[in-house]
């Protein structure tokens, strides 16, 4: 009986707190039928928001993955003065509000910022343009790859890498053939976390974007515009697409982790 009550309680909690919101997104998107929902994607602004989000996410994941791998490698394999400080600094963006993550770039590249006037003369704006969106997104998602990869590399130790070096492997070969394959799942997991956060980033991007449909609106910003324009179905359809993308990311991550647990158990 107690067991049944416990299960019921968990289902209720999960239902109200976690499941209901995404379900409602779908319900709102389809409230006027499939056709009305799909009409959202006939709007060129919607398509360009999707494209901008994909581009920004891919670039962000690229930059933060390369960096994250190097940082995780360095921090997990070597001890040096200032190592702990470096870890703290890398994790800093996690405790900074997304809005601040956008604001800080305005202070560097905005017209009232350090290099704003110089940029204005050069004629290629960074703020209120896609490069600013990219910088803000990178800032906000900076730590995820390092954070997930570092414990795994530390756990794996350095014996295999040292052996490879003895056998004459270069740094690149060691990284590519020994280190990363050994921490494959952690790497993918970090990349997926970065992807999820990058494609959904709102606060930081909203500060540096300019909110121009078709030019500097990412999917989350376009959702806000649609919502404010009373286009509820379109807003929630766009949201449903993002929910779907997030769900895929989460599902892939879960399945990878399960696969890993299974191999660990059998090994």
């Amino acid at each position: 009986m107690a067991r049944f009550a416990f299960a019921a309680l968990i289902y209720l909690l999960m239902g109200i707190m976690v499941v209901l919101p995404p379900v409602m997104v779908l319900a709102m998107a389809l409230s006027h039928g499939m056709g009305a929902a799909l009409a959202t994607f006939a709007d060129p602004d919607a398509l360009s928001a999707i494209r901008l989000t994909i581009i920004m996410t891919v670039l962000t994941v690229g930059v933060n993955t390369i960096f994250g791998v190097m940082a995780a490698w360095t921090l997990s394999h070597f001890r040096f003065p200032g190592r702990n400080l470096l870890i703290v600094l890398i994790e800093l963006p996690l405790s900074v509000s997304p809005v601040v993550g956008g604001l800080v770039w305005l202070l560097v590249f905005g017209t009232q910022g350090w290099w704003g006037t110089a940029l204005e003369r050069w004629g290629h704006p960074i703020m209120f343009a896609p490069p600013g969106i990219l910088l803000a997104t990178i800032f906000v998602t900076f730590p995820y790859v390092t954070r997930t990869l570092m414990p795994m590399l530390a756990h794996n130790g350095r014996t295999a890498e040292e052996a490879a070096v003895m056998l004459g492997a270069s740094l690149w070969q060691v990284l590519w053939h020994v280190t990363l394959p050994g921490a494959r799942l952690a790497l993918v997991s970090g990349v997926l976390l970065t992807t999820a956060r990058a494609m959904g980033e709102f606060g930081a991007v909203s500060v540096v974007s300019g909110h121009i449909p078709g030019l500097t609106e990412t999917m989350p910003l376009h959702i806000e515009t649609l919502y404010n324009g009373y286009q509820t179905v379109a807003a929630f359809t766009m949201a449903a697409l993002l929910v779907l993308m997030a769900a895929i990311v989460v599902a892939v991550r879960t399945f990878l982790e399960r696969g890993q647990n299974r191999t660990e158990k059998t090994a």
Partner: peptide, 9 residues
């Protein structure tokens, strides 16, 4: 899911 869902959504 709550972690992966975009905040605006």
């Amino acid at each position: 899911l709550p972690f992966a869902l975009p905040t605006a959504v």
